[in-house]
C-alpha cells in the first residue's frame, strides 16, 4: 500500500524534494551520450507515474538507462522487476505462478513474490512481443494498478512501468497497449555524431562495472518521487484558490494553453497522429508536472516540448519532433 502524505507536511519539504529529483535528472545523464531528453522523460514519467516506452534498435542503451535509473533512485531486490518478453512468455513469469497448495483447496491464487505485482518499478523489454494473455494483464496493471487473484482485484504498488521495444507493431489489437504509453521516446544511435564521446563514456562505464562501482546510485529515493507526486496531486485537486481561479488559470497561462491546443490539433490533422481523449488528459498532467519539476510552477512554452513524444509510430517520431520544434519556434 502506498503511503499517504498530508499537504501541510509536504509543503516545507517540496523544494528539497525537487532539488533531489532534479539531481537524478542532471547527474544520471552524465553517464550517457546525448540521452538527456530520455533521462528527463524517465524522471518526469516516474514522478507523474505514467508508463514510458523506449523505442530503439538493439544496442542503443535502452536497458542500461532504465537499470541505472532504478539504481539511481535506490531500488533494491523485489522493488525492481525486469523481464524480457517473448511470445512464449506466460503470465506466471510476470505475475507469479499458481499456488498449488491453494489450488488444492480450490483457490486460484498466484505467488507474486519477486514478480511484477510486488515491485515498485518494472521494466518489460520487448513488450510488444508478448502474447495476448500478458497484454490483457498488463492493460489492467497499467491502467488500474490492479491484477486478479482468484477472481478478485488486488491493488498493486507499482509506481512506474518502463517498456522497451525495437519496433512498434501496427496491429490493431495492440492499439490499447500503445495508447497506454502516453509518451514514446526513441533512443537513437549516437555513433555517427558523437563517436569519441561514446567511446570515452562507454569505456568508463565498463570500468565502473569491472570494479563494481555505481557512482550514480542512490541519488535520491523513490519516496521522494511519491511525496512530490502527492504534493502535486494536492495542488491540482484544489478546484479554486481564494480568487476563484482554477488550477489551469493559475498554472497554465492562456496563451500557452492556446498554443498547446493548436499544436495538438495540427499534429492530429496534418500528421495523422492519433491522440485519444485519455491521452489529452495525461498530456496536460505531464506538462503540468514538468513545469513543476523543472521550474517550480507555471507552465511555459518550453514545457510543451513534451508534445514531441506523442507519436505512436516509429516513422512519425522524427517528423513530429521537427514539427513541434518548428511550431514552438514560431512564438
Amino acid at each position: 500500500m502506498l503511503p499517504t502524505y498530508a499537504f501541510e507536511d509536504l509543503k516545507p519539504q517540496v523544494e528539497n524534494l525537487r532539488k533531489r529529483v532534479n539531481q537524478v535528472r542532471k547527474h544520471l545523464a552524465q553517464y550517457f551520450v546525448n540521452k538527456e531528453d530520455i533521462v528527463d522523460l524517465m524522471v518526469l514519467c516516474t514522478l507523474a507515474q505514467e508508463p514510458l516506452l523506449l523505442v530503439g534498435k538493439p544496442g542503443t542503451a535502452k536497458s542500461d538507462l532504465i537499470v541505472k535509473f532504478a539504481q539511481a533512485i535506490g531500488l533494491e531486490g523485489e522493488e525492481y522487476f525486469e523481464y524480457m518478453l517473448t511470445k512464449f512468455t506466460e503470465p506466471s513469469e510476470i505475475i507469479g505462478p499458481i499456488d498449488i497448495n491453494q489450488l488444492k483447496e480450490g483457490r486460484y491464487l498466484r505467488r507474486a513474490e519477486g514478480k511484477l505485482p510486488q515491485s515498485r518499478v518494472a521494466f518489460l523489454d520487448e513488450i510488444f512481443k508478448s502474447n495476448s494473455a500478458i497484454l490483457n494483464t498488463l492493460l489492467t496493471i497499467i491502467n488500474e494498478r490492479k491484477y486478479y487473484q482468484d477472481g478478485k482485484p488486488i491493488s498493486i504498488d507499482l509506481v512506474m512501468l518502463f517498456g522497451a521495444t525495437n519496433e512498434i507493431p501496427e496491429f490493431s489489437e495492440l492499439g490499447a497497449l500503445r495508447d497506454r504509453f502516453t509518451l514514446k521516446v526513441e533512443s537513437e544511435s549516437v555513433r555517427e555524431t558523437h563517436f569519441d564521446e561514446l567511446l570515452e563514456k562507454g569505456l568508463r562505464n565498463e570500468t565502473y562495472k569491472a570494479f563494481q562501482q555505481r557512482p550514480w546510485a542512490d541519488l535520491c529515493r523513490l519516496e521522494d518521487f511519491l511525496k512530490l507526486k502527492a504534493y502535486l496531486d494536492h495542488t491540482m485537486s484544489r478546484t479554486e484558490d481564494k480568487e476563484g481561479r482554477t488550477d489551469r488559470d493559475r498554472f497554465f497561462p492562456s496563451d500557452v494553453y492556446a498554443l498547446f491546443k493548436r499544436i495538438l490539433k495540427t499534429l492530429e490533422k496534418e500528421d495523422r497522429i492519433e491522440i485519444s481523449d485519455r491521452k489529452v488528459i495525461k498530456l496536460y498532467k505531464l506538462i503540468r508536472t514538468r513545469a513543476f519539476l523543472i521550474h517550480g510552477g507555471v507552465v511555459t512554452k518550453e514545457d510543451l516540448v513534451l508534445l514531441r513524444y506523442v507519436a505512436d509510430r516509429i516513422q512519425d517520431f522524427a517528423p513530429v519532433r521537427e514539427k513541434v520544434d518548428t511550431l514552438l519556434r514560431l512564438h
Binding site: 493548436r262 490539433k265 496534418e270
Partner: peptide, 11 residues
C-alpha cells in the same frame, strides 16, 4: 496551408 496557420488566423 498548414492547419496551424489556419488556426492562428481563426483564433
Amino acid at each position: 496551408p498548414s492547419f496551424y496557420l489556419l488556426q492562428i488566423c481563426k483564433e
